[in-house]
């Protein structure tokens, strides 16, 4: 499938995040402060809607538009999921942004999102690098 299809899909997703105020730092702070429950509502309704849509997809037993099998697999559970989640959450609270919303914020003209995006790239790089090294070490041992 062509890159353009994914760029357009990403643009649609970014538009929806923007219209849902997921890109609004005040809404994210408000969620954690419990002073503005809007985003809890968005996330809750989104999960329920996605679950119904996925169930319908499964029942229809269809293939994807490009003829491929639709792959919707649960992500593997391991011991780093909770700690990683907490680390992510600390960053979510400090930056009032997550990976998707930081990119959409940039498109909204909020240039400060460049600092957030640079940080996310740095953190992603650091963790990937560390995991590769640990992998290389354990591979050398075995």
């Amino acid at each position: 499938m062509k890159p353009l299809v994914f760029v357009v899909s990403g643009a649609v997703f970014g538009f929806l995040l923007s219209m849902g105020r997921a890109t609004d730092a005040a809404a994210i702070v408000g969620m954690f402060r419990l002073s503005d429950l809007h985003l809890f509502g968005v996330i809750g309704v989104a999960i329920a809607t996605a679950a119904v849509g996925i169930a319908l997809l499964r029942r229809a037993n269809v293939r994807a538009a490009d003829g491929s099998t639709i792959k919707l697999e649960p992500k593997p559970y391991h011991s780093a999921v909770l700690v990683g989640g907490i680390v992510f959450g600390l960053g979510w609270g400090l930056s009032a942004a997550c990976p998707g919303t930081a990119l959409a914020q940039l498109g909204e003209g909020k240039l400060y999102a460049l600092a957030t995006i640079a940080g996310i790239l740095g953190g992603t790089w650091a963790r990937t690098r560390l995991a590769q090294r640990a992998g290389a070490v354990s591979a050398a041992k075995s």
Binding site: G91, S95, A102, A113, I117, A118, G123
Partner: peptide, 16 residues
């Protein structure tokens, strides 16, 4: 924002 972002990126890769 950069420190928060770094935690977001690091944590996301840990949590998958």
């Amino acid at each position: 924002l950069a420190v928060g972002g770094a935690l977001v990126g690091y944590g996301a890769r840990m949590a998958g």
